Amino acid sequence: MNAAGFNPSERHPDLEMLDGYWSDGNQARLPINGVPECFIDLDPSHGTLTLSVPADGPEPDLARFRSIELATYTDGGDVWWEIRIQVDDSLHEAYSLLTRIADLVQLENQAVAVATYQALEAYRLLLASRGGMSDEQQTGLYGELLVLEHLLRTLSPELIVPAWMGPAKEEHDVALPDVHYEVKSTKGEHRRHMISGTQQLEPLRGVPLWLVSIQLTPTTPDAGRSLIDLVAVVRGLSGHRLPRVNELLVSAGWRDRDADLYDAHLTLRSKPRAYLIDLSFPALTDARIAQVVPSASLVRDVSYRVDVTQLDFAGPPSPMDAFVEIPEEKTE
């Protein structure tokens, strides 16, 4: 059974057969026996499934759904509607939704609009999950792209792009051979950052780890840049590593078709700061928790906020030292 809780009826090719058609990479048409005539077109190269059904009654209003669109065409004097879904990672759910509409039209004699709304209601959780990134996700990606842009302007894409680990959910956001960076961004007035897990601020394999704190604030288009702008810049700096950057952007939640959602412009509220994760940094790690918590191995899903506003910051290795604020040298 698919994630939405539905399987296509026995009138349709099963999901295993669907996967076979899709993996072939070629366009295919799957007729649906019944009255009125209906069929589903598979277009793997464009990532779409399309249900074609004769127009009947009022036109379904799909404007509020981001992943579904309606098109009209005429064939031999007959008017047809195309209900097209952008599949992304939900091939089975999209297929099941379209076959459900066809079943309601052919087997229960429902008007296309009624059948569509009824099927969409059953799949509303699926459709809701295809919205844009949350504000927190956007802020986090914005900060990582700022760091990536800086590094790509000073070092080669061959070194930097493979080092970008944030979207891949690895322990640290940027893992260079001799230094790691965990990038944290906030729109707040204080440098308060959410830390997820006990590994996020744990140096690995003896490689120094720095937390890069970025404060952002909304601004006007002439005074800042949008997430759209940053994505374009990083793509332009990525050279032949662009395909990998595009994969990582998708993993981070970016979809080009949703770009209009990310036109808000931001700028730095203050100069970024960097903090070396050493014994004096207030990080919750497995080793520290084990020292004070009985049966610490049973503790799961640790998350906490750390406020580094008043902590001493420092200068990380080049070229990141040019990205952050460097503290003034203390005089005796």
Rank of each mutant, 00 (worst) to 15 (best):
E247I: 15
L216F: 09
V250Y: 07
I228M: 15
G239F: 00
L211Q: 14
S213H: 09
L261N: 02
P208Q: 12
G253T: 03
L227S: 01
V233N: 03
L209V: 02
R225H: 15
V207K: 13
D222F: 13
H240E: 08
L237D: 00
H240K: 15
S213N: 07
V250R: 07
S238E: 12
V233Y: 00
P243L: 10
D229N: 08
D263V: 08
V245I: 11
I228F: 02
E247R: 13
T217I: 09
H240Q: 03
D260C: 15
W254R: 00
G206E: 11
V233P: 01
L249W: 06
V250L: 11
D222E: 15
S226H: 13
L237E: 04
D256G: 13
R225V: 06
R244A: 03
D258F: 01
V233F: 00
S226I: 09
R241I: 01
L230C: 10
R225I: 09
L227A: 13
R257M: 12
S238M: 12
W210K: 05
S213E: 03
A252K: 03
S213Q: 11
L237S: 08
V207M: 15
G206H: 05
L230M: 14
I214Q: 08
A259L: 02
T219V: 08
L216K: 10
Y262G: 01
V212E: 12
S238P: 15
S251P: 06
D260Q: 15
T220H: 11
L230W: 03
A232W: 07
D222G: 14
G224K: 03
T219K: 12
R235Y: 02
S251I: 04
I228G: 10
L261F: 05
